[in-house]
Simulated assay, not measured.
Amino acid sequence: MTLVLAFRDVGTPDLARRGLTPASAPPAVLLLDVEADLSVDDDGRTVWSEPAFPVAELARELALRLRLPAEERTDFAFDSMTYDVPGAVRIAATGDGWRVGSVFAPDAWSSPCPWPVPARALTAFTDSVRTRVAALGADPHLVPAAARPATAASANGTPCR
């Protein structure tokens, strides 16, 4: 099973209008203005996608979430300053494993998987966004480093369904 949070066409389209650059913009502005086309893909199937998504804000929240110990791990609903409702990206535990989806496509979810599978996908996403933030000229610490996910062995060989 391959779960991917993919993004492309990263940019800061509103900064110039505000007279700012990635190096001069305050962190709160950058979190909203670093945008990209985002998709959640499950084995080549697009579960959900959204253009001009605040990927830095999402990556920051996910990186902080990935640092939580297992006993504090609960469902996640991305509560962005960009959207009126929380859950543009949702991560939910089910009896069969963890799934990723969006409130904007309530019936579309990734396949359920043991936690290490989404954890690796989320960590890869946060690492990539952090790299792109730095390439734009902003402080890479805007997106903190995520905790390293558990190894595949910790999934106990349980496949995604």
Results as ranks from 00 to 15, higher is better:
Phe7Gln: 00
Pro159Gln: 09
Val117Ala: 07
Asp84Ala: 12
Arg161His: 15
Glu71Gln: 10
Glu71Gly: 05
Asp107Pro: 00
Trp109Phe: 06
Pro26His: 07
Asn156Ser: 15
Pro140Gly: 04
Gly44Phe: 06
Gly137Phe: 13
Val143Ser: 09
Thr46Leu: 07
Met1Gly: 12
Asp107Glu: 14
Val29Glu: 11
Ile91Cys: 09
Leu136Thr: 03
Glu61Ala: 04
Ala36Leu: 05
Asp75Arg: 12
Arg17Ile: 07
Leu66Gly: 03
Glu61Cys: 04
Ala6Glu: 15
Asp107Val: 07
Asp41Arg: 10
Pro149Phe: 04
Ala138Glu: 02
Phe78Trp: 10
Arg148Leu: 12
Thr46Tyr: 04
Val10Ile: 11
Asp139Met: 11
Ala59Ile: 05
Ser154Asp: 05
Gly44Glu: 05
Val133Tyr: 07
Gly101Ser: 04
Phe78Ala: 15
Leu3Arg: 03
Ala152Gln: 14
Val100Ser: 11
Glu57Met: 06
Arg161Tyr: 10
Arg130Met: 02
Thr2Lys: 11
Arg161Trp: 13
Cys113Met: 14
Phe76Lys: 05
Pro112Val: 02
Gly101Glu: 01
Phe53Thr: 09
Val117Trp: 01
Arg99Ser: 02
Ala147Leu: 08
Pro159Thr: 12
Val29Lys: 02
Val100Leu: 15
Thr151Ile: 09
Ser39Arg: 15
Pro27Gln: 14
Met81Ile: 11
Thr123Cys: 10
Phe125Cys: 12
Ile91Phe: 05
Ala153Asn: 08
Val40Thr: 02
Ala36Pro: 00
Ala70Cys: 07
Arg161Asp: 13
Ala153Ile: 14
Leu122Asn: 06
Ser102Tyr: 02
Ala36Phe: 05
Gly44Trp: 03
Ser110His: 08
Val47Lys: 00
Ala147His: 06
Arg130Pro: 01
Thr158Trp: 06
Val55Phe: 13
Glu57Gln: 12
Val29Trp: 03
Leu136Pro: 00
Ala63Asp: 01
Ser110Lys: 08
Thr21Met: 08
Ala92Asn: 01
Ala70Ser: 05
Glu50Cys: 15
Gly95Lys: 02
Thr151Phe: 06
Ser49Phe: 14
Arg8Asn: 11
Glu71Asn: 12
Val55His: 11
Ser49His: 10
Glu71Leu: 05
Ala6Arg: 14
Pro149His: 12
Thr82Asp: 02
Val55Leu: 09
Arg67Ile: 06
Leu5Met: 04
Ala134Glu: 08
Val89Met: 14
